[in-house]
Design a binder for these strands. Structure first.
Lengths: 344, 344
DNA sequence: TTGAAAGCGCTAACAA
DNA sequence: TTGTTAGCGCTTTCAA
């Protein structure tokens, strides 16, 4: 009987032979050992150790039809998100949770629209058990692709075409942007602020849309002029604040749709001699600690559990897979929390 | 754990049946069609299209012993590199080249030292054909792991333990940090600068070490006091420049080991009323366009083809795999280029 | 040039 | 509880 031939990896056959059991029993032990008598389990385990046996994934996949792998799809226009600490954290959450589920992370970078064919083929090839994708623009063909290929997919961030009213049951994981924004604005109100402005994010992103909605929820009759458009960069926050100060010098509270824009606003306020929070209170969103803690003054902001959202994406996916692999699992919206620092 | 996707995909058997050929012939066509007569090729191709056949990867891997997958390993301490545009670019290069080679990218995030077991097991499982890892610290167990497991690995950036003199034949891809630094300093010399300082990067990273070496190559007898330690952040560049100005007011040229530090230095020079490049000429390294182009004045710097280095990593790996999968392929050092803007 | 047949290494009925 | 056996879908000799 073949023992370990140098070069080639030991097979289950070899383990079984060495332990003096059948391949089936060896397999049972390797897969948990349920229903195998103690001494045999021991012998097989020992054989595994001695031989340095590692199961052949391809063979296993061939029969079980499970890959133990999940695709993370990132569309080219958003490859920038790699530079986004937000994404790093989410990816880490995904990675950790996947590891906990003994699954691997296959990274799919979509380079151009022609690339969707490749992605579709790959997904159709059944190489992965499911897919995770990130918030997409209106025209993104990806949801159609994953749907057609019939591969369970969970989105990170509510996709624009999956609004609460669209009726499209697309599973996604997102934080409660609207609720968080409400809380931020309510906090400013509770501080007695009378003229609360909003520096909004780009309105083709649901997070920005929802945060604006949250602002409006609280300030139903706010002067529309108090809402200014930014693009999530610090610079745009500065520009927005400058305009605000010029047109609405009475402003005494600002809710920025993210911390970066808030930091830009803070800088402008300082330049203009407005004291924060005395003259103007400022609240951000995201709680990107490296910015929120180092602004002057430190920024009060809305925090979300980003890594947790990554983990959740995996959990939602796996739950769906476990159910039957077809029924789309439900979406999850995670709570936010107001983190008080000095700026408001 | 993931479960199968219901709805069984068509097999090669089905294709063969539909085309009225044997499975062997169908297989040949699917794999290029060499040595199959024209009409048969056509018939099989058509059957493939009609059935929407996609080869089962697991089955193929089982017999060919090739996975069509490469692991990209990122050690936890450097997970920050996700926030590094440098890494995004390199990853993109890797992804593109891998796609060109019909291979997938399996992302392995190492969370802690205990995680190396998991990584080792995974690599040992033969799930991937090779691995790409990023520049590691001295004590990193990863090279030992990949070596022991016998999986071909290419490193990004020269690992500290693979110095030119160490004799360790570890394949890596890096840019010519030393040569680039030499060119930068030589440029300052050619500008007639007499007192050229160096703001060095952290000396536990080979890129920083090599750049310092390059500086010394040109300025053999430079005053050691003209070399100041930074940590690759803009802030550290500012601090370094401040100290330099205090202790060496005669300085008229600065080579910073990266653009971020150069930008910090630029800011300090401005504050101190030194004109750039008239009073002090400044050269950076990396050509991170979003910083080098937006400094005041725009930064002259050393550019490297980052995405190209990513592609190269894959090419080096694949070349090694093609050879015999054992012999370690050689390392590659890519050239750098001085990009002249205004600062020098 | 084509086909028949033998596995690749594993799991899961089914028997014992 | 354990073993026997039949594949999973594919590539690849080997013959025809």
């Amino acid at each position: 009987m073949p023992v370990s031939i140098p070069g080639s990896r030991p097979t289950l056959e070899a383990v079984a032979a060495r332990a003096g059991v059948s391949r089936a029993t060896a397999s049972r032990v390797v897969n948990g050992g349920d229903g195998v008598r103690r001494p045999l389990v021991e012998r097989v385990r020992q054989a595994v150790d001695e031989l340095g046996y590692v199961p052949n994934h391809a063979a296993r996949t061939l029969v079980t039809r499970r890959n133990g792998a999940v695709a993370v799809i990132i569309a080219e226009p958003e490859i920038r998100i790699f530079s986004d600490p937000f994404f790093s954290l989410q990816l880490r959450g995904i990675s950790r949770e996947l590891t906990a589920h003994d699954s691997q992370l296959v990274l799919l970078l979509v380079e151009g629209s022609g690339d969707y064919d490749r992605i579709a083929r790959y997904l159709a090839g059944g190489h992965v058990d499911g897919a995770l994708a990130f918030s997409l623009h209106t025209e993104d063909p990806l949801p159609a692709v994953t749907h057609k290929v019939g591969i369970p997919t969970v989105f990170g961030g509510r996709p624009v075409w999956a609004g609460p009213e669209s009726g499209l049951a697309v599973p996604y994981v997102d934080c409660d942007n609207r609720g968080g924004a409400r809380e931020a604005v309510q906090h400013l109100v509770s501080l007695g602020r009378q003229h609360i402005a909003h520096i909004a994010g780009p309105q083709d992103q649901t997070s920005a849309i929802d945060r604006l909605d949250g602002y409006r929820d609280v300030l139903l009759d706010a002067d529309p002029g108090l809402t200014v458009q930014g693009d999530f960069t610090a610079g745009s926050g500065a520009v927005a604040m400058t305009g605000l100060l010029a047109r609405h010098p009475e402003v005494d509270g600002v809710f920025a749709a993210n911390d970066l824009m808030a930091s830009g606003a803070l800088a402008v306020l300082r330049e203009h001699g407005r004291r924060v929070p005395d003259d103007v209170a400022v609240v951000g969103f995201d709680n990107m600690v490296n910015v929120a803690e180092s602004t002057d003054p430190p920024l009060t902001t809305v925090s979300q559990d980003i890594e947790g959202m990554g983990r959740l994406m995996v959990q939602v996916l796996v739950r769906g897979l476990d159910r039957d692999g077809v029924t789309p699992p439900g979406s999850v919206v995670t709570p936010t929390e107001l983190v008080r620092r000095v700026s408001a």
